[in-house]
Write a protein that binds this DNA or RNA. Structure first.
Lengths: 143, 143
DNA sequence: TATTGTTATACTCTATAACTATA
DNA sequence: TATAGTTATAGAGTATAACAATA
């Protein structure tokens, strides 16, 4: 049996558009400007709940000393708080502050707004096509 | 007149999938691993032809001293060559080596291959939907 | 004088190795 | 002894300021 005939050029063209569009979205920033790692840490804490520095380092694929710095910087910005671990006095639990949640909301709002502005310039038919493609893009992004 | 009724949630959902998929594509790397700036410089030289350090710095939105470092690192990797400017002896022209072109080809090939593997797991209908959405994503990415 | 490219220096973000406190 | 977190130190990559060569 022949291999599934892949749509010639679909992967290459999709790669270019998705990477370029992602770049444009990442350019939409918020003050105070936090680094990508700092934003990822806050996002992880918000999605998954309080974590220890070690868990965060594993989750973000950085070494513990690097995470120490990231945490210190976020603390200075008032973006996270420490609390003692209930059973192990070596560990600490980190939680995002309300200020951090507000910043993440504003960042999402700004990026969504940028995209929404450009979606409004499309025809209703084009938007319908995107809406049909959305679940497939979601599936690909989780691959 | 009411503002164009925007598809509720389309922008937010599209933002999430596109950024996540872009992240997965960027994770596909090639040895020797070059930084994003270094890859961008090689890509610009390949697309636009030989340029001076100043032109590259402007194009990549970094300061000239930073570009000096990027260029030095790429030279050490054998990724670009200098030639004298035909009319201005202050300037130098930078061109990618064949080795650099080969590396960019391999990087594109690898990222496209990753996406192609996952496209093959979709149904023909799903691929057709993506193909229909592609020109719209291209339009958005150039916004 | 103005511009191109580089050097000097500093700051940020990453890493590995070594240290302290606790298990 | 092993683990969690931090400190010490170093290596990229960025920046600004100051310099030499050329226009």
């Amino acid at each position: 049996m022949l291999p599934t005939p892949t749509d010639a050029g679909l992967a290459a063209a999709l790669r270019i558009s998705v990477m370029r569009l992602g770049r444009r979205l990442r350019q939409q920033r918020v003050d105070p400007a936090l680094s990508d790692t700092q934003l990822a840490v806050l996002g992880a804490l918000e999605r998954l709940g309080p974590m220890t520095p070690r868990e965060l380092a594993d989750h973000e694929k950085v070494q513990p000393p690097s995470m120490t710095r990231v945490i210190a910087a976020l603390e200075e910005h008032g973006m996270l708080e420490r609390s003692p671990h209930p059973t192990d006095r070596r560990q600490v639990l980190l939680s995002p502050t309300e200020q951090a949640s507000a910043l993440l909301r504003e960042l999402r709002r700004r990026r969504t707004a940028w995209l929404d502005r450009h979606l409004r310039e499309l025809s209703p038919e084009e938007r319908a096509t995107l809406r049909a493609a959305l679940p497939i893009l979601e599936k690909l992004s989780q691959a």
